[in-house]
């Protein structure tokens, strides 16, 4: 578990320093972003085909592709993980991102119903 937490922390730190997609201005946006971009990143890292048919999906995918490339380059421990382990890691990472950016967030604007 400690190992898993350490891995999540490394991935989270990278996202926080390099990405902007996790900080959309509303809770539902953030949940969508976390869900789709992290799911696709996991799929890419497992060598699966990602659905990029709609413009919305393509937009998630370009952020996911950047993440997948960067993670592969920076975290060589990923190469020794099975697809099942990677999937589990990304489920946990998504939970953590949801907590930091939505459920545990102190940002009072997230629940404003309008943009």
């Amino acid at each position: 578990m400690a190992d898993m937490n350490d891995k999540i922390a490394q991935l989270e730190n990278f996202i926080m320093k390099k990405c902007l997609w996790q900080f959309h201005s509303r809770a539902w946006d953030r949940k969508n972003q976390n869900e789709n971009i992290l799911r696709m990143t996991g799929e890419l890292l497992c060598g699966e085909t990602v659905n990029t048919d709609s413009p919305t999906d393509r937009c998630y995918w370009v952020d996911a592709a950047y993440l997948a490339d960067s993670f592969r380059e920076k975290f060589d421990w990923l190469a020794s993980m099975s697809n099942k382990e990677i999937k589990a890691l990304f489920v946990a990472l998504k939970e953590r991102m949801d907590f930091v950016t939505v459920d545990g967030s102190l940002n009072a604007e997230l629940t404003d119903p309008r943009y």
Partner: peptide, 26 residues
């Protein structure tokens, strides 16, 4: 209108490069 939003950074070599690459990929 269903137009997706891609946040980018135009400052700095690495953030700019990854931004151009994302737009290119799209």
């Amino acid at each position: 209108y269903g137009i997706p939003r891609l946040d980018i950074d135009g400052f700095g070599f690495e953030p700019l490069s990854s931004s151009l690459l994302k737009i290119g990929r799209f």
